[in-house]
Design a binder for these strands. Sequence first.
DNA 1: ACAAAAGTGTTCGATATACACCCATGT
DNA 2: ACATGGGTGTATATCGAACACTTTTGT
Lengths: 219, 219
Amino acid sequence: MQVAVDAVVFTIANNDLKILLIKRKYPPYQGQYALPGGFVLLDENLEEAAQRELEEETGVKNIFLKQLRTYGNAKRDPRGRVISVAYLALISADQKLKATTDASDARWFLLSQLPALAFDHKEIIQDSLENLRYEIQTTNISFQILPKKFTLTQLQRLYEIILDKTLDKRNFRKRIRELGILKATGEQEREGAHRPAAFYTFASTKYQPLSEKINVFLK
Amino acid sequence: MQVAVDAVVFTIANNDLKILLIKRKYPPYQGQYALPGGFVLLDENLEEAAQRELEEETGVKNIFLKQLRTYGNAKRDPRGRVISVAYLALISADQKLKATTDASDARWFLLSQLPALAFDHKEIIQDSLENLRYEIQTTNISFQILPKKFTLTQLQRLYEIILDKTLDKRNFRKRIRELGILKATGEQEREGAHRPAAFYTFASTKYQPLSEKINVFLK
DNA sequence: ACAAAAGTGTTCGATATACACCCATGT
DNA sequence: ACATGGGTGTATATCGAACACTTTTGT
């Protein structure tokens, strides 16, 4: 029996939620897109395998990965029995991807415009999106996606895009303030013909649950 | 690489939360207790494997299993590389276990009095308990543990034991009523020198999230 | 009659939601 | 001066938490 890992990597670019896919070079599903991933080596932990495969296939390395769940339907892989442990990640859109060569074709896709996908990767992505929505409301995983310094509007946009709904600016800021997870840097974004926005950073950069409060922006 | 499944099966007996363990007959960890589980066969799905192993080792069969997470540390099994997909279940305490023979030794253990455990099963149980607490607050998984007909006090006791805290009777009943997941059967429990309690059943017996509300009894 | 668990509503505080205007800048 | 996005506070509604007495039965 073979054990694989797959990474569902989300980012936000141009106000849209995107996902990182690679084009498969070999059968099965040759030429189709799939989640980055591959087989786990005998001496590496599961998450290490996911990090390695991600770097090999897309150039993205050393990011925070959260285990999603394991897909083990007996017929999910035409090559034989392969189970796959899926990982979830959020990264900043300015990470460089490996240049597209004949050995590597990694691209961002709009969630609303996914190509046909190999294996059960469509299902994995569905599950991931649900999980991502849960994560951003209960943990500080959003740290992963924003630049070191960011404005409150950028942060709010992130939530709006992932949750796919608009949020009230004042209420959003109030809750973020209450959570106490941000620090003002004192600097300002000076861009565009409007009042400059204050820059913030996260007080902690370790993945963790948001204080005691679950359910921060549900409903 | 080998793929195993393990089942963390909880029950409640005598007002205590218990967990189902088996004594290992062969090395490694021979004679120590472990979660019921074993290797996945080539042609069965992961959950099927968990059901099968559970029945073989404990006599418990055909119960609701929820995937917890996958444990894949490279050194977790001294025999070599084995990853294990853990499943969580709640069952009623009156399920008969396989009689203890030299081929089978399955027993319930108080969570507070666990023996030394094989592999990383201690960690798996810790994670399961957290997950169980989350599940009973966000899904109707408690269906699995109660008899077909039960009293509101029995249901409340279940929550109190799993959450390890007391709940207010009136608030508890109000919320359960609001959730609309119970039906009164019209029958009464006539036992003990006190007012008889009304029997209820669950309106649906399928595992599902509790309406829109997450976070039903947190805090 | 008494012991034992079942059953039942209301008040109060905390949290979530709805909502509109002024500010600082670039052009 | 005007267009653009940044920034701020309050009032109301909803939800969660605290709380005590009456009812029905068996002995």
